[in-house]
Lab assay of single mutants.
Amino acid sequence: HNLTITQGKLFFHYNPKLCLSEIHKMEEVSGTKGRQERNDIALKTNGDQASCENELLKFSYIRTSFDKILLRWEPYWPPDFRDLLGFMLFYKEAPYQNVTEFDGQDACGSNSWTVVDIDPPLRSNDPKSQNHPGWLMRGLKPWTQYAIFVKTLVTFSDERRTYGAKSDIIYVQTDATNPSVPLDPISVSNSSSQIILKWKPPSDPNGNITHYLVFWERQAEDSELFELDYCLKGLKLPSRTWSPPFESEDSQKHNQSEYEDSAGECCSCPKTDSQILKELEESSFRKTFEDYLHNVVFVPRKTSSGTGAEDPRPSRKRRSLGDVGNVTVAVPTVAAFPNTSSTSVPTSPEEHRPFEKVVNKESLVISGLRHFTGYRIELQACNQDTPEERCSVAAYVSARTMPEAKADDIVGPVTHEIFENNVVHLMWQEPKEPNGLIVLYEVSYRRYGDEELHLCVSRKHFALERGCRLRGLSPGNYSVRIRATSLAGNGSWTEPTYFYVTDYLDVPSNIA
């Protein structure tokens, strides 16, 4: 807008934040220059609390790290170098490059900038070799853009010569660093050979998330399962459950009422301010606690030095998902009996873990797994792929695949051998790939016309006998059925096997 004052003059007093240069501009645009008398524009009460600059400061050096910015700028000295009290560095987070010096300023003089007072450097006698002032900004957020400017702080001049310097606002972004852990990993099994893994992005990506790394490792069953005799009275049979499938998407929606109208769909109840505040506090606490764990609990591995020492970490090797089922080394339970199943799973520490690289999504279907087997899954978020990966501390989750139908069934015939004193040795093959492992066998036998009897055969007993022995049988026709019990439950009964026990007292003698 054009402003013209045809008559009258300007009068400025007691404006401590208004620089004289701005008042002189007002004289020019209003056409009143030359009308004012000496005392109409006070030299001592206008701009006496402001830094009124008329020179431009330029930054000469900028260096960044993930949490620091090192700045240096060209030296500046007023005509009387004693008038320079120091520099004021202003900075704040700036997602967009549209910041002005006066953003967030209120009537009390406060604003949204963080201000650092910096002492002037030592003055050199040689004007050509003056030290460049600077400042190291610490405690910054990774991968965050900051708006920065600097200006001088000078003393009051009796001659009211307006001098000083100020830089333009520059924008500097800190470097990326390792992201925080992925949030809320959930693993479920939808079949006997697959596990579905879902997660949420890290709360602090500290860069642009480029991919996720998912490692999985087959877990050995508890050692007590191999040692305890679950045929003993009072000892509860062990059981394991597989990871249940995901709930429906509708039930997972946030901010939804727990109660549904019987007449149909209901609208979600909005969260109160107290609920939102509580969630923010919980989120802040979780982030602080995660940072504490990362800094205190997890110790970084030592990389190899120039002395030739090897990095103890196993090298990563990509495998196809079809090879995942046989990740671990199978060892027989008892070496003397080769027909026992290889369900003991000690994992070799030198073995390469299978892994998958996930790009542009937060889910993965891990296939080719062994049925009813526990897996430990390790999830890392990465925001750099080359020249070397920059990934987060791992988040861990466990899951067990679903049982395989008929995996616990005894394959092959049940054979028998009759000894003296009416002892019958029953023999059968253990299931080759049971659900988890076989903890015991149930032997059901009966003599024709009598009630059915049951015998429990422990895992250890089966390994020693290759089956079991029935003792003290009365003469007669017998039928026997056997079924295995694994961590997933009972298998199917075998087809009945028949044998006849004679009275050993009636056996004919070869003595003449």
Rank of each mutant, 00 (worst) to 15 (best):
E433S: 13
T347L: 13
P332Q: 13
T347Q: 07
K278F: 10
A309M: 06
K357N: 11
A220N: 10
E350T: 12
P475Q: 11
A381E: 02
S458C: 14
F246P: 09
V365H: 10
H352L: 07
G467M: 04
L277I: 11
S284F: 05
T497S: 07
E258A: 10
S479W: 07
V424A: 05
F462R: 06
G368W: 13
L237M: 09
L321M: 11
S283L: 12
Y441I: 01
F289Y: 07
V327K: 15
G368I: 03
R390Y: 02
E417S: 09
R286K: 15
N477A: 07
S341Q: 14
Q256K: 12
G467Q: 05
G368P: 13
V457C: 12
E451M: 13
A512T: 03
C269W: 08
I418F: 08
V397M: 12
R301A: 07
D222C: 13
P244W: 11
E310I: 03
P496I: 10
K278P: 12
G489A: 08
P205F: 14
G374S: 07
T328L: 12
L364S: 13
I366Q: 01
V397W: 05
M427Q: 03
Y448D: 11
R301M: 10
C382I: 01
D291E: 13
V501W: 02
E290G: 14
A405S: 08
C456S: 03
Q380M: 09
Q252R: 11
Y448V: 10
E279S: 09
D503M: 05
D323A: 09
Y396R: 08
E279Q: 06
F298L: 03
S344M: 07
A399H: 13
S320K: 15
H425F: 15
D311Q: 07
V414T: 03
T340G: 08
N208T: 05
Y441T: 02
A220G: 13
S274W: 10
F337S: 06
L213H: 10
S509N: 15
D311F: 15
G467P: 01
A330D: 02
N477W: 04
S304V: 08
Q275D: 08
S474E: 14
T347K: 08
R318D: 14
V443M: 05
L213R: 06
A463D: 13
Q275E: 10
H254W: 10
E356K: 13
E420S: 04
S305D: 06
K278M: 05
V359R: 08
G306W: 12
G476Q: 00
P475A: 09
H211C: 01
E221P: 07
M402A: 12
S348W: 10
S320C: 08
A381R: 01
N255S: 09
I276V: 08
V345N: 06
F298Q: 15
C391E: 07
R286C: 11
S203G: 10
H254L: 12
T333S: 03
S262P: 13
N295H: 03
L470E: 00
C456Q: 01
R471H: 05
S268W: 03
R218T: 12
E281V: 11
R481W: 03
S479C: 03
N421S: 11
L237R: 14
T415N: 03
Q256I: 13
Q429M: 15
P354G: 12
E221N: 04
E290P: 05
H416D: 01
P270E: 04
S203Q: 03
P300W: 06
R301P: 10
P244A: 10
E247R: 13
H371T: 15
R240H: 10
G489T: 02
V214L: 08
D408S: 03
S305V: 13
S223F: 01
T373L: 05
D385W: 07
T415Y: 13
A395M: 08
T303N: 14
R466V: 04
G449Q: 13
I276C: 03
V414Q: 03
E495R: 07
P413H: 15
V397T: 02
D408W: 00
I209R: 14
Y292I: 05
F355H: 12
K460Q: 09
L369C: 15
D506T: 15
V327Q: 13
F215R: 12
D222H: 15
Y441Q: 01
R481M: 09
V214A: 06
R447G: 02
R466P: 05
L473A: 02
S320R: 10
N421P: 14
L440N: 15
D250Q: 06
V501M: 05
S248Q: 15
T497E: 08
R313I: 07
F289P: 06
E378V: 12
E221A: 01
P244E: 12
S509T: 14
P312Y: 13
G322V: 08
R240A: 02
D250V: 08
A399S: 10
E290L: 13
P431F: 01
C231P: 04
G467Y: 03
S257L: 09
G264V: 10
K460H: 08
L437H: 04
A394M: 10
G476S: 01
D273C: 03
T307V: 07
Y375V: 13
G322I: 11
D229L: 07
V331P: 15
R459P: 05
G368M: 07
A394G: 14
R483P: 00
D409L: 13
S341Y: 04
L232F: 13
V297P: 06
E249T: 09
L225S: 07
G207Q: 01
N360M: 05
C468K: 08
N326A: 12
E404P: 02
S274Y: 13
E224R: 14
N339K: 10
K287W: 15
V443Y: 01
S367P: 12
A336H: 15
T343Q: 07
H371G: 12
E417L: 10
L232D: 15
D450L: 04
A395L: 08
N339I: 13
S486A: 07
Q380H: 14
I482V: 15
S398H: 13
L277K: 15
P349Q: 03
R318S: 12
F355K: 14
Y478L: 00
T494Y: 01
Y375Q: 02
P314F: 15
N206Y: 04
S509A: 08
V443R: 01
S315W: 11
Y212L: 02
T241P: 06
S239R: 10
F372L: 06
T307Q: 07
R353A: 04
N208A: 04
E389R: 14
P496M: 02
V424S: 01
P300Y: 03
P314V: 03
C456R: 03
T386N: 10
C269K: 02
S284K: 13
L470Y: 01
E389K: 14
N295M: 15
H461N: 06
G374L: 10
Q219P: 09
S342H: 15
Y500R: 11
Q219T: 11
G472V: 07
S315T: 13
R313E: 15
G234V: 09
N421G: 03
L505E: 11
Y259D: 07
T303S: 07
G467N: 02
I276R: 05
A463L: 12
P205E: 02
F298K: 01
Q384V: 10
E495T: 11
T333Q: 15
Q256P: 10
V501C: 12
R370S: 14
E221H: 13
P403A: 08
L237N: 06
R483V: 01
G491Q: 09
G308V: 15
G308P: 09
S486I: 00
G449L: 14
T373K: 14
L369W: 01
D222Q: 02
L213T: 14
A399K: 12
P270F: 11
S223G: 05
L464D: 14
L280R: 11
G234W: 06
N477Y: 10
N421R: 13
K406L: 08
L379V: 07
T288W: 10
S474Y: 13
S342P: 08
S239V: 05
I438C: 04
V423A: 12
E290V: 06
A395T: 05
P434W: 01
E388I: 05
Y230S: 05
R400P: 01
Y504I: 11
E217C: 11
P238F: 12
E224W: 12
T328F: 09
Y445T: 02
V331F: 12
D250F: 11
D204W: 15
P314I: 01
Y292T: 07
R313G: 03
L277V: 07
Y504G: 09
F289G: 04
E356Q: 13
S251N: 09
A330K: 15
I377W: 06
S367F: 09
C266Y: 05
C269L: 08
R469W: 09
S344P: 07
A394H: 15
L293G: 00
N422E: 15
Y292G: 02
